[in-house]
Design a protein around this nucleic acid. Structure first.
Lengths: 163, 163
DNA sequence: ACAAGTAGTCAATCAACTTGACTAATACCT
DNA sequence: AGGTATTAGTCAAGTTGATTGACTACTTGT
């Protein structure tokens, strides 16, 4: 006897996707699967690198250029006190260096070390490469269709964030 | 004087996207933005509902049907002991009920309450609605192009998870 | 019927966050 | 200029959500 034998009160929900009565087109299903998979990337990469998610996200931002702990706190949506701890741990592992800011002596600049940059990129580059590869096969016309779809999907998702 | 005035040592990295020397097509940029935005949905929704991310993910799975704490632990990739705590907190707030399993007396079945189901769906339905709306405008030919792109993108991203 | 495995929980501990207090430096104001 | 408010960063203490390891209850396989 299966574990899902009795549904008693539940009035026949659709098997896949819990949004009853919603048209599940193939594109929407594919989109949902993409988003689900993408959501697992950060935890996995962080785990492999022996970092917390916060530390990884901080490093991702630091790859783009140096910022201070305060900016890190804003990007991660944590308190500045928490950012201090995150930077402490990154610095202890040699992933970032604290430097005094050139002009504002209240500030600290966080500089990612070359080894940390390489470690993060080594994890992510294969994905970017694979994405670029499949992307390259689009012709100009399809490219426009896909771009429009992605932009509109992003907008639809963004709505939930601001509501 | 701006805070980002001096770049000193950084040898002219591209302004957007830290993957130097990579072709950043419009579709790839749009895809990356979509994934970035999508990654912010769960934390935002969890925060609004006064739940931890783990609790929200557990509820999302419970919407599909009842499972036990062990299955929750597997889905969240936490220990079964942690799952006990998650279920405790959900039960304390009236979001789930523990029921004895019909046949296996070691097991507990977790049943989501109607109020919890409604709360989660109320947060997510607007997004699904917006996505379905924009999706509905695709014609059959474009639909195929987009679906193929999404499937291949998902596959590319998935590679990173198994490597 | 007995050994091994499975489901769930409890107790103790750990790690990352929060709040609130504090120092130091800069910006604003009149 | 001088005094007040603001900003950047850190520290200390407490909270929370996870972990490990031990334990009970039940089921499965031989």
């Amino acid at each position: 006897m299966s574990a899902r034998d009795k549904a008693e009160d539940a009035p026949a929900r659709p098997a896949s996707g819990f949004v009853a009565g919603w048209s599940q087109t193939a594109t929407l299903v594919a989109l949902r699967e993409l988003l689900d998979i993408a959501a697992r990337v950060r935890p996995t990469v962080a785990d492999r690198a022996g970092l917390t998610q916060s530390e990884l996200v901080a490093l991702e931002h630091l790859i783009k250029g140096p910022v201070g702990p305060g900016e890190v706190a804003r990007q991660l949506q944590v308190t500045s006190a928490a950012a201090t701890g995150i930077v402490d741990r990154l610095a202890a592992r040699g992933h970032v260096e604290r430097r005094p800011h050139a002009t504002d002596r209240r500030r600290t600049e966080l500089v990612i070390t070359e080894s940390a940059r390489e470690e993060v990129l080594a994890q992510l580059l294969p994905m970017f490469r694979a994405l670029a590869e499949m992307d390259a096969e689009l012709d100009a016309r399809d490219r426009e269709v896909v771009e429009r779809y992605l932009r509109r999907a992003a907008e639809a998702v963004r709505q939930v964030l601001v509501t």
